Computed example of a mutant assay.
Amino acid sequence: MSSVPGLELSRAYYEEVVAPLLQRHAAGLEHAAARLGSGSDVLGFDDAQSRDHDWGLRLTLLVEGGAAGEVDALLERELPRLWRDHPARFATTWDPVVRQRVQVASAADFASSRVGIAPERLSGDAPIEIIDWLQLTGQAALEVTAGPVLHDGTGAITAIRDRLARYPEDIRRYAIGADWTRIGQELQDVGRAGLRGDEDGSSVIAARHVRTLFHLAHLLHRRWAPYGKWLARSAAALPGGGALRIAALEALQARDWRSRQAAIADAAELVAELQGQVGLPTLDPATEPFFERPHVGLRGLPELLQEEISDPAVRALSPGIGTAEQISDHVSVLVDPELRRRLVGG
């Protein structure tokens, strides 16, 4: 079996097999083809180990006008058994049936299944509501916006991807403030735990801050943050991410609380500086001594972001609470749109 990356394989599969098949059996069918949805290859992060499950001849084929069922049946009937030594039909972790894995749907139905927003809000003129944005996770958004669109004959998926490309600015500011709130609540505890001789506890708290700072860096760059497995790798690839990665590694590898505390403070200062660079208000320095103790606390960055919010409905949200993925990191919650809505008050 070849070692070709998944995105390259999907592109060739569409161009050499699926597109010609549609031309033969459904000439004139307006459609879009892409590699969207789940899978490390959608983000371009797949490797040899990725191929042990849910990897292979996968595509997203988007057709409008209720033709999805007919096209799916056509592909199941006509696709070859193997192509380039890869099976065209296989079971997945979410479906034990051995069948072809070109997912066929309308653009709005497909996107809705990923992001948990009603199809009419994705494809129509109705606005996407605040609660829709609050329940949305970065990983869910990336499953619609990150992978390549190979062909878009209808324009529907491109329009949806444009709508989901980033948070509205006031919700972005709200989410940035929530990340700073989380950091401010426990930044001093990296030192406090260490001073009590609990280096393990200090390390655990520091690691939580590293994860929050990586998420925050994505928000500042108007990028969606992927789920935990790829969060650090994605953060390092952001502009200026190399410096943040070095500070984060120093914090994670530190053997004593004073070094760990200094490294976390350095990482927070880097992200606060980035905040100013992207045009948002910031503080320099962003950290300060915590009362009379030998610990580091955060200055009033959450309040600065709250003052930047102009939409009354967003200003009315509880400051510092944030989006579903900021409130919980429980996978079973974050992959379920209904549970995410309940989490943010829907």
Rank of each mutant, 00 (worst) to 15 (best):
S3N: 07
V4A: 12
E8S: 15
R11D: 13
H31A: 14
H31L: 08
S40T: 02
V42A: 01
W55T: 12
L57N: 00
L57D: 08
L61E: 09
L62A: 10
E64I: 12
G65F: 11
A67H: 15
E70I: 04
D72R: 15
A73Y: 09
E78W: 14
L79D: 12
W83T: 05
R84H: 07
A91F: 11
T92P: 00
R99K: 15
R99E: 08
R99N: 07
V102G: 07
V102I: 05
Q103R: 08
S106G: 15
A108N: 11
V115T: 03
G116Y: 03
G116T: 12
A118D: 15
A118T: 08
P127L: 05
Q135N: 08
T137F: 00
G138R: 04
A140T: 01
D152A: 06
I157W: 01
Y167I: 04
P168D: 08
P168A: 05
I171S: 01
R172S: 03
R173E: 12
A175G: 03
R192H: 14
G194A: 09
G197A: 10
V204P: 06
I205D: 04
A206S: 13
V210S: 02
T212I: 15
L213C: 09
H218Y: 10
L219E: 03
H221W: 07
L231K: 05
R233L: 10
S234N: 09
R245Q: 15
A251N: 14
R260N: 07
A263K: 04
A267N: 05
A267C: 05
Q277A: 14
V278P: 01
L280S: 06
P281I: 06
T282S: 11
P285F: 02
E288V: 15
F290I: 02
F291Q: 12
P294D: 02
V296D: 02
V296N: 02
D311E: 14
P312N: 05
P312G: 06
V314N: 01
V314D: 03
I321L: 04
R341V: 02
